Amino acid sequence: MNISTRIILVNTSLPANIGAAARAMKTMGLYDLVLVAPKQFPHADASSLASSASDVLANARVVATLEEAIADCQLVLGTSARNRTIGLPQLDARSAGSTAQQHEQAGAKVAIIFGREDRGLTNEELMLCHAHVFIPTNPVYGVLNVAAAVQVLAYEVRMACLLAEDTCDEFTGTYSQRPQPVPDPLEQQGMPITLVPWDEELVKGEDMTQFYEHCERTLIAVGFLDPENPRQIMTRLRRLFGRTRLDRPEYNLLRGFFKRVLALSGEKVGRGGVILTAKSSGKNDV
């Protein structure tokens, strides 16, 4: 069973952790590894720790930014051991595995992000995610190596996939009866992420990057957002739209609204929402 969930490692310092994470992935049937600005890669330590998962390393993509890593993803889960001032919907590892499986079954591309060894993900990086994933470790000592955290999440994703279908038991060779449907864990959250209940395309990460830039420019143009004192307006809007999970028609509707508001405010708006000012060439989409 090959599972399409993407594992993203951000600014990993030790190449050995990259190799160990690749090994953890392959043992659970995950092969899509993306590295965001790793300190050292490729490296002999990564190859050594990967053992027989050298194919995962060989096919790993290295990108400069997290935005690039999630550009084609419709569900992004960020792992963190710390709560943040403005929180996202929270999922434990088991719920995250179930959620990833459900979204993948519906055709969405799913990514799980792991931060730096010493400080994890920044607030800005976590706000690119739809939910905050935590592993309920021992409260007295809850420190996990990044590769160990990858192993836990990869295992939960695999178990959710095995439970979702009638499959032959890989160890005993016997068939098991399909279990009763597992309730969507996100329905129990105060701020749920829900699957779009109709057949419309979910918007990808690269489109949402343009959406937030367009939204921010619109709020500035009408005087609602002061760029010198932005407070938490855009952070809260990111959380709001992250929970909403825009589909393509909704996205186009809101982009059209932003474009019209900007036009009424005096901004000259070109095709596709491009802002045309005296200093602009008209080539940079918002």
Score class of each variant (00 low, 15 high):
Ile3His: 10
Ile7Phe: 03
Ile8Gln: 13
Ile8Cys: 08
Val10Ser: 02
Pro15Lys: 08
Ala16Tyr: 02
Asn17His: 06
Ile18Lys: 01
Gly19Cys: 09
Ala22Leu: 10
Arg23Glu: 01
Ala24Gln: 03
Lys26Pro: 00
Gly29Tyr: 01
Leu30Gly: 00
Leu30Thr: 00
Tyr31Asp: 13
Asp32Ser: 10
Leu33Pro: 09
Leu35Pro: 00
Pro38Asn: 15
Lys39Arg: 14
Lys39Cys: 01
Gln40Cys: 05
Gln40Phe: 09
Asp45Leu: 09
Ala46Cys: 11
Ser47Asn: 06
Leu49Asn: 05
Arg61Gln: 15
Ala64Thr: 13
Thr65Phe: 14
Glu67Cys: 12
Ala71Pro: 13
Ala71Lys: 11
Ser80Glu: 01
Ala81Ile: 00
Arg82Thr: 00
Arg82Tyr: 01
Ile86Val: 13
Gly87Asp: 12
Ala93Asp: 15
Ala93Thr: 10
Thr99Gly: 03
Gln101Pro: 01
Gln102Lys: 15
Glu104Pro: 11
Glu104Met: 14
Glu104Phe: 07
Gln105Met: 08
Lys109Met: 13
Ala111Asp: 14
Ala111Pro: 14
Ile113Gln: 09
Ile113Met: 05
Phe114Pro: 08
Arg116Ser: 02
Arg116Ile: 10
Arg116Tyr: 05
Glu117Trp: 02
Glu117Met: 01
Arg119Ser: 07
Thr122Ala: 12
Thr122Ile: 02
Glu125Asp: 12
Leu128Asn: 13
Cys129Val: 04
Ala131Pro: 02
Phe134Asn: 07
Asn138Leu: 07
Asn138His: 12
Pro139Gly: 04
Val140Phe: 02
Tyr141Leu: 01
Ala147Trp: 05
Ala147Asp: 05
Tyr155His: 12
Met159His: 13
Met159Glu: 13
Ala160Ile: 04
Ala160Lys: 09
Leu163Cys: 06
Leu163Gln: 13
Glu165Ala: 05
Glu165Met: 01
Asp166Gly: 01
Asp166Lys: 08
Thr167Cys: 10
Asp169Asn: 15
Glu170Lys: 10
Phe171Asp: 11
Thr172Gly: 10
Gly173Ile: 04
Gln177Ala: 15
Val182Ala: 14
Pro183Trp: 07
Pro183Asp: 12
Asp184Ala: 07
Asp184Pro: 05
Pro185Phe: 04
Leu186Met: 10
Glu187Asn: 11
Gln188Lys: 07
Gly190His: 07
Pro192Ala: 08
Ile193Arg: 03
Ile193Ser: 05
Leu195Arg: 13
Pro197Trp: 01
Asp199Tyr: 00
Val203Phe: 06
Gly205Lys: 09
Glu206Asp: 15
Asp207Val: 01
Asp207Lys: 11
Met208Val: 08
Met208Leu: 15
Gln210Gly: 06
Glu213Phe: 00
Glu216Ser: 13
Arg217Ala: 15
Thr218Leu: 14
Val222Leu: 08
Val222Pro: 09
Phe224Asp: 15
Phe224Met: 15
Glu228Tyr: 07
Asn229Gln: 14
Arg231Asp: 15
Arg231Gln: 14
Arg231Tyr: 05
Gln232Val: 11
Ile233Gly: 09
Leu237His: 14
Arg238Gln: 12
Arg239Ala: 10
Pro249Cys: 11
Glu250Ile: 12
Tyr251Ser: 02
Asn252Met: 11
Asn252Arg: 08
Arg255Asp: 07
Gly256Val: 07
Phe257Gln: 10
Val261Glu: 07
Leu262Asn: 05
Leu264Gln: 14
Ser265Val: 07
Gly266Lys: 09
Arg271Met: 08
Gly273Met: 12
Val274Ser: 06
Thr277Asn: 06
Lys279Tyr: 08
Lys279Pro: 04
Lys283His: 08
Asn284Glu: 13
Val286Tyr: 00
